[in-house]
Write a protein that binds this DNA or RNA. Structure first.
Length: 592
RNA sequence: GGCCCUAUAGUUCAAGGGAUAGAACGGAAGUUUCCUAAACUUCAGAUACAGGUUCGAGUCCUGUUGGGGCUACCA
């Protein structure tokens, strides 16, 4: 059991014994002691003064004495300015280290029996993935791992926006200008090829609008009546009617996009348990809307469109079906949610979607509740912040979109340059090197994104490459590689890591203390859906270890028992680095 | 206009209402006969502004200012 809990419990009993009243739980504040003070855990005594009716100093001393008596793990205490600092005995920490070494899935929560569904990625099929999607994908993946680490059963799902007018634009543009080009014939990745024709459509559309305006038409009318747009709209009608030619083209081009996406996902190390397509769920959404209409929770406008009145909830009225009976964005989301619940009966459903859609999810939950689905309360919108450039938001119109594939290429290239410059890999096979560059480049990218609190807007400057020094993925990877190198040498010399009970250095106890927090970190990052806390843990541990590495020798230690004991410590540090970084989807290399 | 989010060193990020606000990059100065210098050590540098609540506020509340988002019969 973790020390904070032990101390908190003891504190409650001690306060009751000393002052004769049971303190409310929120008055019992135990935290880790700040680095600059002597001690491991700190009791904040201010909240207890009301009960003790004595000075902070006196209260702290009295409690300190009692706790010292009742908990053998505590070696000494000190009261400074109203803070009671407790120092654990070094044998306590050494036992912790042994516990860690002996616990198979150290840090992981026990099975909860709960199913957590996580939707992330959710791409459009007419644009390649960009930096925003990278944050989405990495967050979704990492949160999935963190949920698993908390003992939940996880179902990772993707929702592909594969229908709507935008798809028709790409199709039409390809028919007109594509001359039957394919990813194979052009050598262009499928999603990029389709994206190119989407852009091509937009260019033509703008030209036509301009011509019409020059011919004397009002701009608003021109925007509506440009021939190419009208052609796309009639194509959408054909799609909805099930026109075979249109459907075949749609399937063919979507297939290209999926092939392209698969490559990108694979490179990011991302998989899904199930992929949903809007084209398959929007019909159920329509049925739900009709049911809501029948039940009187929705209403029909004179023009035939169907709405929900949310003004009593402080929101507007929301359109659910157009007058012509076609569905809108939220219609399919209703259908998707219900079919997922029917299929998996999730206890929690996390949607990893940008904060620009906060309103959408607020409405979605309200609508589901109005339709009588009580599990609407189990929906959590993990609303992450945008990735911005120094000049603001990425805009495809201004060509500032940072492409996911390009960015990964660049990261790997930088890893290659940095690695080759160091000259440490000369005896490594070319395949081994390539593999390493990928691990390092992606490690840098993933860590860069995930170390930031998901809810916050973050900044990316394409002109400055992502760092490989300091608080970065490669820093932690490097720390790991160093430890593994020592462990390999130790193994080849026949050394065996083992606990001997030799006195440990302050630095070593600090490392153990950090590692002792791991279970709590996993729990908290799960509670907050925040990989950033995991990243901070990894960094703190790596930094602490690097200082230790610099000061203390392991392989050259003459005292064999001490040497082997240190090997045990190293092994556990490496293990937790690998475990925690694994929760971020980052691989650690044996050497670099 | 209405609603929501946000503001911490030059820059990018930390800090469960608790002690002297931590790191990293960048800047200055150092460390390599010794397990990987992608490391380590030292120095300089910050809570937008004004009130309030509290024994105690970067953190909670109110206002001001700056930044972002939403407010589509797009998805």
């Amino acid at each position: 059991m973790n020390a904070e809990i032990i101390i908190t419990e003891a504190l409650g009993k001690v306060v009751e014994k000393l002052y004769g009243s049971v303190p409310a739980p929120e008055l019992l504040q135990v935290q880790t002691t700040r680095k600059e003070f002597e001690g491991d855990y700190t009791v904040v005594v201010f909240p207890l003064l009301r009960i003790s009716r004595k000075s902070p100093e006196q209260t702290g001393s009295e409690i300190g004495r009692e706790i010292l008596d009742s908990l053998p793990e505590i070696e000494s205490f000190q009261v400074i300015k109203g803070f009671l600092n407790l120092k654990m005995s070094s044998s306590y920490w050494m036992n912790r280290l042994q516990d860690i070494a002996l616990t198979k899935n150290y840090g992981m929560g026990s099975p909860s029996g709960r199913t957590v569904m996580i939707e992330f990625s959710s791409p459009n099929t007419n644009k390649p993935l960009h930096l925003g999607h990278i944050r989405n994908n990495l967050l979704g993946w990492s949160v999935s791992r963190i949920m698993e680490a908390n003992g939940h059963k996880v179902v990772k799902v993707n929702l592909v926006n594969d229908r709507g007018i935008h798809i028709c634009k790409s199709m039409l543009s390809w028919l007109r200008y594509g001359q039957n080009v394919t990813p194979e014939s052009s050598g262009i990745k499928g999603d990029h090829l389709v994206g190119d024709y989407y852009v091509r459509f937009d260019k033509q559309y703008k030209e036509e609008v301009k011509e019409l305006v020059n011919g004397g038409m009002e701009e608003e009318q021109a925007l509506r009546e440009a021939p190419i747009l009208q052609e796309a709209q009639s194509m959408l009608v054909k799609w909805e009617q099930g026109d075979e030619q249109v459907l075949n083209l749609w399937k063919k081009m979507n297939g290209w996009v999926y092939q392209g996406f698969d490559i990108t996902y694979k490179r990011m190390g991302i998989t899904f348990d199930k992929i949903y397509y809007e084209s398959e769920t929007y019909l159920l959404g329509k049925e739900l809307v009709m049911k809501g209409l029948k039940d009187g929770v929705f209403f029909r406008d004179p023009d035939g469109s169907i709405w929900c009145d949310l003004t009593s909830e402080g929101l507007d009225r929301k359109l659910l079906l157009r007058a012509d009976g076609t569905s809108v964005y939220i219609t399919q989301d209703l259908g998707t949610a219900v079919s997922r619940y029917q299929e998996y009966g999730f206890d929690t459903h996390v949607y990893v979607v940008g904060n620009e859609q906060n309103y959408h999810f607020q409405v979605l939950k309200l609508l589901l509740k109005k339709l009588g689905f009580s599990w609407a309360d189990d929906i959590i919108h993990l609303s992450y912040g945008m990735v911005e450039l120094p000049e603001g938001r990425m805009k495809s119109r201004e060509g500032t979109v940072v492409d996911a594939d390009d960015l990964m290429d660049n990261m790997i290239e930088t890893a290659r340059e940095t690695s080759l410059e160091s000259g440490k890999l000369e005896d490594m096979s070319p395949e081994g090197q390539e593999h390493l560059f990928e691990i390092l480049g992606l490690g840098a990218l993933k860590y860069f994104i995930l170390k930031v609190d998901p809810r916050k807007t973050m900044l990316f400057d394409p002109r400055e490459s992502i760092d490989f020094n300091g608080n970065t993925g490669p820093f932690i990877q490097y720390t790991f590689a160093r430890i593994r190198s020592i462990l390999r040498k130790a193994a080849s010399r026949g050394y065996h890591s083992r606990m001997y009970g030799r006195p440990m250095l302050e630095k070593e106890l600090r490392l153990i203390k950090l590692m002792a927090n791991y279970p709590q970190i996993i729990e908290e990052s799960g509670r907050d859906y925040s990989p950033a806390q995991i990243a901070n843990f990894s960094f703190d541990l790596a930094r602490e270890f690097n200082q230790y590495y610099h000061e203390v020798t392991v392989l050259h230690e003459e005292d064999r028992e001490l040497r082997d004991q240190r090997l045990l410590l190293l092994k556990q540090v490496a293990r937790l680095l690998e475990s925690s970084m694994g929760l971020l989807g980052i691989t650690l290399p044996e050497r670099m």
